[in-house]
């Protein structure tokens, strides 16, 4: 276990090193510090030192610390991703189970055709469509920004859902509900993509598990279908679904950023887009560090989580290490 964590941390350090070198080049390129005879290594050391001390530079537009701006913007993106994941799981996991249980039956075909069609829709186009469609059908949902400008919610955690709950004294729950209303349409668009992804993963992993011997044994034992699903199938299907979703985190975030730009949600995507338009290029390395840092850390956390819930994962892990050791021994 300890060795496993150590290896993961190693991965973080190497990736972080490559990332900081990249952002270092980006940041020092445009302000011209890389030309001339300055010492790259000492400049890089200074850069890392400043990063660790939290001095990430200031935005040229409003002279605010860029790290704070980036984190607040990214928090808003995460909020959107979280809500979309929540919605998508509630809808997609049952559908995926149905499709997986009756593989190659009518229900499976219906669900999978819908999934394929949705998967083929470009997400930015869906967002543009979503800004118009609801009004056409008589639903008045907000399409711009993340909260009505009437509410002035002070930034405390950066997560507006929490901040608006903290401002209950001034606005009761209005600000919170207003914010939720602003999130409905972007969440729908993002969760459409997620739903297709989760349905496909669930269906695949369930249909594989349905063919294993222990399910056959369970059937032979006379367990009902429901019992089999809840007791054996779900438990064994979940780890591989989560594992696959981990790979999709970066896709989800980049989709969320695209959607934000269409809906003018002040998240990481809008922030980056506006910063680049205003020639505030320092936002670029900051965003790279924040977003890739998040993806790194979260994927490692998911790995650890998977290891905790799934004995099979743990098993393969030790086997791998043993193999590695043997290899080393041979050479």
């Amino acid at each position: 276990m300890f060795i496993y964590l150590l290896r993961r941390c190693n991965l973080i350090f190497i990736t972080a090193f490559i990332l900081t070198v990249l952002t270092f080049i980006l940041e020092h390129w445009h302000n011209g510090a890389l030309s001339g005879e300055s010492n790259y290594v000492s400049a890089y050391y200074q850069y890392i030192k400043a990063l660790l001390e939290g001095d990430w530079g200031y935005s040229i537009v409003d002279k605010l610390p860029i790290l704070d701006k980036g984190l607040i913007a990214f928090a808003s993106t995460l909020e959107l991703c979280f809500l979309a994941c929540l919605c998508a799981s509630i809808i997609a996991i049952p559908l995926g189970i149905f499709a997986g249980l009756d593989r190659n039956h009518r229900l499976d075909y219906i669900i999978m055709s819908i999934v394929l069609i949705t998967l083929a829709l470009p997400v930015f186009w869906m967002s543009i469509l979503m800004t118009m469609l609801p009004h056409f059908f008589g639903f008045n949902l907000p399409i711009d920004g993340n909260i009505s400008p009437i509410y002035e919610v002070p930034v405390r955690t950066g997560f507006l859902l929490i901040d608006s709950l903290l401002s209950v004294n001034t606005y009761h729950f209005d600000a919170f509900f207003d914010h939720l209303a602003h999130l409905i349409l972007p969440t729908i668009v993002l969760s459409l993509f997620l739903i297709t992804e989760i349905i496909r993963l669930t269906r695949h992993s369930i249909s594989i598990i349905m063919q294993t011997n222990y399910i056959k044994a369970a059937k032979a034992k006379g367990l009902s279908r429901l019992e089999i699903i809840f007791r054996h199938v779900l438990k064994n299907a979940l780890p591989s679904i989560i594992h696959q979703l981990r790979v999709q985190i970066s896709t989800i975030i980049s989709f969320a950023m695209t959607i934000e730009i269409v809906f003018s949600l002040p998240g990481a995507g809008t922030w980056l887009y506006n910063s680049i338009n205003n020639a505030d290029y320092i936002a670029l390395p900051t965003a790279i560090l924040i977003i890739s840092g998040f993806i790194l850390i979260s994927s490692i956390l998911i790995d650890i989580f998977l290891m905790l819930i799934s004995p099979i994962k743990r098993e393969t892990l030790y086997v791998n290490i043993k193999n590695k050791c043997l290899h080393m021994f041979y050479f």
Partner: peptide, 8 residues
């Protein structure tokens, strides 16, 4: 205009 219609 859309924001006017939606009351924003």
């Amino acid at each position: 205009y859309t924001k006017l219609l939606s009351g924003e």
